[in-house]
């Protein structure tokens, strides 16, 4: 059994298409420029429409938890749940940090996005040490 994967829907299709090309997108407000995650129907700061912007996908670990009681079937026995603070505006993204000993993860660790193919439709934006 694999872990739960997102469903490509009308709102998030461009995000997952870009992910397959190895590009990280983020909703950016048409009006105030605020970036948010996960995608909402309107900008949560000023309620305007938003468009997809390309993110360089680099940042630092804002916080993390080394999880040894997995969320459900299909998850690894040990994984690092993390909030990454992206350098392009300081938006926070929920992800997993991989390619590092979980005990070495620290707040402030520089990281960059690394896409991993999970299914035909979904490549997930993990983060690895930069």
């Amino acid at each position: 059994m694999t872990k739960p994967l997102p469903t490509v829907d009308a709102m998030t299709a461009p995000y997952w298409e870009a992910a397959q090309r190895g590009e990280l997108l983020v909703p950016e407000c048409d009006s105030c420029g605020h970036k948010h995650f996960p995608a909402e129907a309107v900008c949560p700061k000023c309620l305007s429409n938003w468009h997809w912007a390309t993110s360089p996908g680099v940042g630092t670990v804002y916080s993390f938890s080394v999880v040894r009681r997995p969320a459900g079937p299909g998850f690894p026995d040990v994984y690092v749940l993390a909030l990454v603070e992206l350098s392009d505006g300081g938006w926070l993204m929920t992800t997993n940090i991989v390619d590092i000993d979980p005990d070495d993860v620290r707040v402030g660790l520089p990281v960059k996005v690394d896409f991993r193919k999970e299914s035909e439709a979904i490549s997930l934006p993990y983060f690895i040490p930069a």
């Binding site: 739960p4 997102p6 709102m11 998030t12 998850f75 929920t94």
Partner: peptide, 17 residues
């Protein structure tokens, strides 16, 4: 994991929160 997608299209589901 069975309580339904979190975020549009379940954008947060794969991360094990």
């Amino acid at each position: 994991a069975a309580r339904g997608p979190i975020g549009a299209g379940g954008q947060l589901d794969p991360w094990g929160g």
